[in-house]
Nucleic acid binder design. Sequence first.
DNA 1: ATTTTTATGGTACGTTCGTATTACGAAGAA
DNA 2: TTCTTCGTAATACGAACGTACCATAAAAAT
Lengths: 222, 222
Amino acid sequence: MPKRVDHEERRTQIAEALVRVAGRRGLHAVGMRDVAAEAGVSLRLVQYYFQTKEKLLFYGLQHLTDRFSARVGARLSAVGPDPGPRATIEAILLASLPTDEESRTFHLLYSSYSILSVTDDALAAQPFIDKPDAAEDALTGLIRQAQEAGLADPDADARTEAISLLAMTATMGTSILVGQRQPESAIAVLHHHLDRIFTPGRRHAPKGPPTAAPAAKARVYP
Amino acid sequence: MPKRVDHEERRTQIAEALVRVAGRRGLHAVGMRDVAAEAGVSLRLVQYYFQTKEKLLFYGLQHLTDRFSARVGARLSAVGPDPGPRATIEAILLASLPTDEESRTFHLLYSSYSILSVTDDALAAQPFIDKPDAAEDALTGLIRQAQEAGLADPDADARTEAISLLAMTATMGTSILVGQRQPESAIAVLHHHLDRIFTPGRRHAPKGPPTAAPAAKARVYP
DNA sequence: ATTTTTATGGTACGTTCGTATTACGAAGAA
DNA sequence: TTCTTCGTAATACGAACGTACCATAAAAAT
């Protein structure tokens, strides 16, 4: 037989073509022929490696989330070894904002899949619903950790704040996507809440004199 | 000629059929034939009143936002005459959560249109982007109003809080839609933030003793 | 060397979609 | 009345889509 090719590799190649063309024209507008052309293969090949369009879409979603997880991981290790809870959370949130081509594509397609899953049972059964739950748990743990270290307001409800941060990030990401908001504006809002949460409570009184209001960091809504 | 029918009325009837079928099967899945069947008219009629599918979709979006605005208005007058800023904001936010069939459909379709507008220029040009801006302005004004009346934290940044509340509501609405979160959970988070914002500041000292170190409302993380 | 797999190409089939065409009865206008 | 115009219907058309089918060269397996 010919070359004895690596199926998984080929599938990845095709899935990336799917992601590219879907990011450009919208998930609803991609056909198997588009994917084939983008990947530089014949339509038959796409059928060969994914028997059906549905399977292709599922695989594409999986690939998308995998890439995104890797990206967040890279951002995390980029902030230096053993970053504090706040830096970690900030890295996660900022990585989720559509600020460059890859994150823009991710945000667009993940949103598309989510909306699609509302009316598509097969997609809803796909295990990409637990990703948000995992993020929520992670942030909750980080906030609790900061509270125990005296770095965050001990009176804050960690889970509520985690939900809030993720929720704000998601919507503002969409706003950026549709051109309604600038990334800087979204970042300012997130910083505002991080500042609010990561303020040592009175019980753990840190060091500085409890005097005059320290200069407000940033925000400024244009 | 026959009956001399009201075109606007017919268009509304058809648009409502569109909204119903799109809410059931997803916006991407509706065809002109589906809309015609749902409205109980022939395909030709849908073509007659809307020449093209694009125009039908635009009209449907317009109708959707109009209905939603009316619904929010109804909720507002339902909370009694001259409600306070907080009650007003709460009514707006809670009306936006997909808790019944109508709000569920609205949330699903509005999200679908938004995502579509990212890759569809004609849809992006449609004036439904300013709706969120209007809501943001309204909430900002209400918070400022509450601050001046001594009902809200005077140190809070009204616009930032308005953006945050709307952003959280939107994402949590989607979470409810996909079955990831219960409405009660979303409402609890919103209440938490409303409680935080609508807390009379110390400057307007309501009643309690002016004791312990005033909470540094902010920033500069250590 | 022959036979069986495997990867790939080309193309045809059946369906569905948006749109266009044609037709016709009924109501105002002349 | 006659003519025009409006609302409604049925159906046809061309394109695009997902999928199925047939073919073939090349590497293993026998």
